[in-house]
């Protein structure tokens, strides 16, 4: 298949399945709270509904950053789709993509001039501490497998078994990272928390909000895809689907049970878990 067609197909699949997974997360959270909850396609419907609503650019906003930052968000996660399902490329680029995602959270918040966005902007700066687990995950995978390439990691797991079984603490750190990107009521997602209305997304409304939600669906799909590929290995499409549903449901469970944390406590919890994970993983590899 043509490379461009493959990229387009994967982006579309990422968007649809990511949205359905978010809907599933809401359903799981609702059922835990003993209420029926919205239908699973609700997140997809919200995204499309916002997409066709009017957006205005506030007079106080920093143009063109206010609009272009949403483009940058989608561009980096299309890059993640290219690295992931399409080319099985270098994993270290994921680190750069996460860094730029933090920048997007920062700038989307501050570019509108609204106080809620500004709070999210500042939280994005010190929640970059949560990227520490990612760098540790990459290094530990490198120490274990000798490669930072997705194709190499898949080949290693075909030969030696799933990494989930040999370096489980690293998988735990990656799950902490995924939780910090999960959309609904995550304990670690302080930039999008409900105590600051909608964080950096507050002042992007209408079409721009629908656009950001599309990018976030692709983000979620890619995060869970990378988790499954790096820690379980190359799976069939049905395997990926089942794995994604399980991971999303577990994270929905975690989100439903944990409280919304004070930003400092949230970051400290992530760093502590990262520290335990790093020391434990290195101990398990070398001792």
């Amino acid at each position: 298949m043509n490379l461009m067609a493959e990229i387009l197909l994967n982006v579309l699949i990422a968007f649809f399945i990511g949205s359905l997974l978010f809907g599933l997360q809401r359903k799981v959270m609702a059922r835990i709270q003993m209420r029926p909850g919205p239908p699973i396609i609700q997140h997809l419907l919200h995204t499309l509904k916002f997409f066709i609503k009017e957006t205005v650019f506030p007079k106080t906003a920093a143009m063109p950053f206010y609009v272009v930052i949403t483009l940058i968000l989608m561009a980096i996660w299309v890059a993640a789709v290219i690295i992931g399902p399409v080319t099985h490329g270098p994993l270290l680029l994921l680190f750069a993509i996460f860094a730029i995602h933090k920048i997007v959270e920062h700038n989307a918040g501050s570019s509108s001039g609204s106080p809620y966005g500004k709070l999210s902007c500042v939280r994005a700066v010190f929640s970059a501490a949560a990227e520490l687990p990612l760098f540790a995950v990459l290094i530990i995978i490198y120490l274990k497998t000798g490669t930072m390439d997705l194709a190499g990691i898949i080949a290693y797991q075909d030969a030696h078994g799933a990494l989930l079984l040999s370096i489980p603490l690293t998988a735990l750190m990656f799950i902490v990272l995924i939780i910090s990107k999960s959309y609904y009521f995550s304990p670690f997602n302080i930039t999008l928390a409900k105590d600051i209305i909608s964080g950096f997304e507050t002042e992007h409304f209408g079409t721009l909000r629908g656009f950001i939600m599309m990018s976030e669906s692709i983000t979620w799909y890619m995060l869970v895809w990378i988790f499954l590929t790096v820690f379980i290995g190359g799976l069939s499409p049905i395997g990926y689907l089942i794995g994604m549903v399980i991971v999303t449901a577990v994270i929905g469970l975690i989100n439903a049970i944990t409280p919304i944390l004070n930003p400092n406590h949230s970051v400290m919890a992530e760093v502590t878990l990262a520290f335990i994970g790093i020391v434990g993983s290195i101990a398990m590899i070398y001792i």
Binding site: F65, S110, S111, G113, C121, A128
Partner: peptide, 9 residues
């Protein structure tokens, strides 16, 4: 905002 973003980036 644009100047702060380059600090962070």
């Amino acid at each position: 905002s644009p100047f702060l973003v380059i600090i962070h980036l």
